[in-house]
């Protein structure tokens, strides 16, 4: 795991999986409202959190990310009424894969982020950033 990130004073590198219709607009809103969050947070937007391959989370940690946050559709999902359960199953599989590789399962996290949940997103990023910093030491 890379711990040096010149662009963020060595802060943990966080990959966020967002969703095109629900959580990505919420993350956009955080930016439109000029809420600051660490620059080491980077986002890949996908159609729906239930479609995330658990291997991508492992791949991200192995590629050098310190943590992966899934900004899930939650109950707002327009595709699947059981999206939350499906995304939870994805997270469970991802944590199993991560544990198999001897990594800390706390490096992956999920929360529902709605299309106007900018404050909640920023607060999750700050908390996850802090939690990952503590894991490192």
């Amino acid at each position: 795991m890379t711990s040096s990130d010149s662009s963020n004073g060595g802060g943990p590198k966080i990959l966020v999986f967002s969703t095109n219709n629900i959580s990505d607009p919420g993350i956009d809103l955080a930016g439109s409202s000029h809420m600051n969050y660490p620059t080491s947070v980077q986002v890949i937007s996908l159609p729906c959190s239930s479609g995330i391959n658990p291997r991508w989370l492992l791949h991200a940690l192995e590629a050098g990310f310190d943590g992966v946050f899934v900004a899930a559709d939650g109950t707002d999902c327009a595709y699947l009424p059981d999206c939350t359960d499906r995304t939870a199953a994805v997270m469970q599989k991802a944590q199993d894969l991560i544990k198999e590789r001897g990594l800390d399962p706390r490096r992956v996290k999920m929360a529902g982020i709605c299309s106007v949940c900018s404050e909640s997103f920023v607060s999750h990023m700050e908390k996850f950033n802090k939690a990952l910093s503590e894991l490192k030491t």
Binding site: L46, P47, C48, S50, G51, I52, N53, P54, C77, Y79, L80, R86, A89, V90, K93
Partner: peptide
């Protein structure tokens, strides 16, 4: 198909 990818994982 709605393209949400529920089958992917």
């Amino acid at each position: 198909c709605k393209g949400e990818g529920g089958c992917v994982p």
